[in-house]
């Protein structure tokens, strides 16, 4: 590509060619970040569930923070690595990053709010985090799926939203969130929301 001047028709062909070549990259990224959050959420939920059954102590619930700490520290590194590997940020990537940043900030605010209620009002509001993890994350994922036109994300997100609404109804209706049904629901929702779409996206990216 060294020619300085060229025909008008060639210009149109060149523009079309460049758009086509960059379009290929816009299809889909890799699903490693989703897999990280999915497996992390499932592993921590299983750990909390087992310890709750064995120890019968509510302090075990502090372990939920592991999702936040581990996921929050590894995600920027993975995102950076993925961006460096591809060498390009598409507009879809930008929308996606903004949506997930918003979810991240909302989760921080929600966590501190629940902590505040617990410390200053002696009220247990941690059930809200369960709703947040399913409803808001599911919604964000469905939006990402719509932008990327990836059905697994839309379906996974919808599963999360439905589970989140269900938990919210239970909380509002005063139904206790017992671990024996709440934990499997949380785990299944995260498998549908993160693990399945993550593997599907990686499989498509490899193709």
């Amino acid at each position: 590509m060294e020619k300085e001047q060229f025909e008008e028709k060639e210009s149109i062909e060149l523009i079309a060619d460049m758009i086509a070549r960059t379009k290929h990259r816009l299809c889909i990224g890799d699903g490693n970040i989703m897999l990280l959050w999915g497996y992390l959420a499932v592993a921590v939920a299983l750990l909390v569930w087992v310890l709750l059954v064995v120890l019968q102590h509510p302090a075990v619930n502090w372990l939920w923070f592991l999702i936040w700490i581990i996921g929050g520290s590894i995600t920027p590194k993975l995102a950076r690595k993925s961006r460096d590997k591809s060498g390009v940020t598409s507009y879809v990537d930008r929308v996606s990053n903004s949506v997930w940043s918003l979810v991240g900030w909302c989760s921080i605010i929600a966590t501190f709010m629940c902590l505040g209620f617990m410390l200053f009002a002696a009220k247990d509001c941690w059930g809200v985090m369960m709703v947040f993890a399913l409803l808001i994350v599911g919604m964000a994922e469905a939006v990402q799926g719509i932008v990327l036109q990836e059905r697994s994300l839309i379906v996974g997100g919808a599963v999360g939203v439905v589970c989140g609404i269900f938990i919210m109804c239970c909380l509002v209706g005063g139904i206790m969130l017992y671990a024996h049904w709440c934990m499997p629901l949380f785990i299944l929702a995260f498998v549908a929301m993160m693990i399945v779409p993550g593997h599907i996206i990686n499989h498509k990216a490899k193709k």
């Binding site: 590509m1 300085e4 001047q5 060229f6 060639e10 210009s11 523009i15 460049m18 940020t89 930008r94």
Partner: peptide
């Protein structure tokens, strides 16, 4: 109206940002 500059602009019109290696590879 120069082949390489137009190619670069066409790529950048289609993405939010791109690094040198990516543009070099595509063009």
């Amino acid at each position: 109206h120069s082949q390489l500059r137009l190619a670069v602009m066409s790529i950048l019109m289609n993405v939010a940002d791109a690094d040198f290696v990516y543009i070099k590879g595509i063009t």
